[in-house]
């Protein structure tokens, strides 16, 4: 049996995200050229890779700050991503925002680091699709830490009420920075808290990306018919909360726990599944080379790009959506504008 196209796509994306992460981690301090905080998603690559085959360019993702996986799986440009980390003008955000707020409207991808704000903005994007009778969906991604903010429950309620084509994904990696989930709430599950809002909920606890992908395909198809969904995936970040080095010295989680999760590494699992295919090693090698090449070119692009030189004018556009001629308001004041005493309300 040979690899199917779907398997190739999912495996490639999974590998791409992992390799890019590891490469940045490796270079971060060496060159010291990426001067922005970064939240790596090693260990959490599965969901973005699993949904990647079913998303169109016109679909929108609003992501949390651990966003590199979703960005790449939404076909975000690696060159622009690295340029952004370098603070270069060719970056996704013109070098003004960095990894934490990686956003590129060309691929309809937005992210931010104030936990839950992006999730709630996804509602607006889904609302616009419905308003304009378009078939696009929006995916809002959040971590378990963000799930504790009140705005999440407002957003879920609005999505239910307005029947928005939106998929909420919660990546539950157990820790909010260094605080364990049971120190923050009553269970490992958010599904139980979302269900009563009237939207369909699913929880996944698997390291098999193909199984996950199959189920997510169905979910995405249903969301496209205007039924909001909430999906939670149990996952684990292999690295630290922020930055390339590990944060084990804070003793907030046991090495045993991490090793247990590392044994369940979705990449090891996928390799095991695919190793029986005749052409796996051939493609694996090809992908390896392809990705290394992509990474090399992206660094070259970032290195060669220029730093931005101005920024103040970017805060406001001062432009109008239509051609406007200003009216010179010369209406005289006096007798015609009468004051009034406010009425009781």
């Amino acid at each position: 049996m040979k690899l199917t196209n779907l398997e190739k796509k999912i495996y490639f994306n999974l590998k791409l995200v992992r390799k890019v992460q590891l490469d940045i981690i490796n270079r971060y301090h060496q060159g010291d050229k990426m001067k922005c905080p970064m939240h790596f998603c090693t260990g959490q690559e599965m969901m973005p890779a699993a949904i990647s085959p079913y998303l169109n360019r016109a679909d929108t993702i609003y992501s949390h700050h651990r966003s590199h996986g979703y960005f790449l799986c939404k076909n975000g440009s690696l060159k622009k991503m690295f340029a952004e980390f370098y603070g270069k003008i060719t970056g996704t955000n013109g070098g003004l925002a960095g990894s934490q707020e990686l956003s590129d409207s060309v691929v309809n991808f937005y992210s931010g680091t104030i936990l839950s704000g992006a999730l709630a903005m996804g509602n607006g994007s889904a609302f616009a699709s419905k308003y304009k009778s378009k078939k696009n969906i929006t995916i809002s991604v959040i971590g378990d830490g963000g799930m504790e903010e009140g705005i999440v429950y407002e957003a879920i309620n609005l999505a239910y009420l307005y029947k928005l084509p939106i998929l909420f994904i919660c990546e539950n990696n157990i820790y909010s920075t260094h605080t364990h989930i049971l120190d923050r709430t009553n269970s490992y599950n958010f599904v139980n808290k979302i269900m009563p809002h009237g939207i369909k909920c699913l929880k996944f606890n698997t390291n098999n990306v193909f199984q996950l992908s199959k189920k997510m395909k169905k979910v995405i198809e249903t969301v496209r018919t205007g039924k909001p969904h909430f999906v939670e995936i149990q996952t684990y970040r292999f690295g630290s909360h922020v930055g390339p080095e590990d944060d084990d010295h804070y003793n907030y989680r046991s090495l045993k726990e991490r090793e247990m999760w590392k044994k369940k590494d979705p990449i090891l699992k996928v390799k095991k599944i695919l190793s029986t295919r005749k052409d796996f090693y051939e493609f694996d090698k090809k992908f390896e080379k392809n990705i290394s090449n992509k990474i090399k070119k992206a660094y070259e692009f970032a290195e060669a790009s220029k730093f931005p030189t101005s920024y103040k004018q970017l805060n406001l556009s001062n432009s109008y959506s239509k051609k406007i001629k200003f009216y010179n308001n010369n209406i005289p004041f006096g007798g015609l504008q009468e004051g009034h005493k406010p009425k009781p309300y």
Binding site: T60, Y62, S105, Y110, G117, A120, M121, G122, N123, G124, S125, A126, F127, A128, S129, Y131, K132, T138, G150, I151, E154, A155, N157, L158, S321
Partner: peptide, 16 residues
């Protein structure tokens, strides 16, 4: 909060 975020997302998607 939810309303304001909805307005923001809608504005980013071309509505006013």
């Amino acid at each position: 909060q939810g309303e304001t975020a909805l307005a923001a997302g809608a504005a980013n998607s071309g509505l006013r």
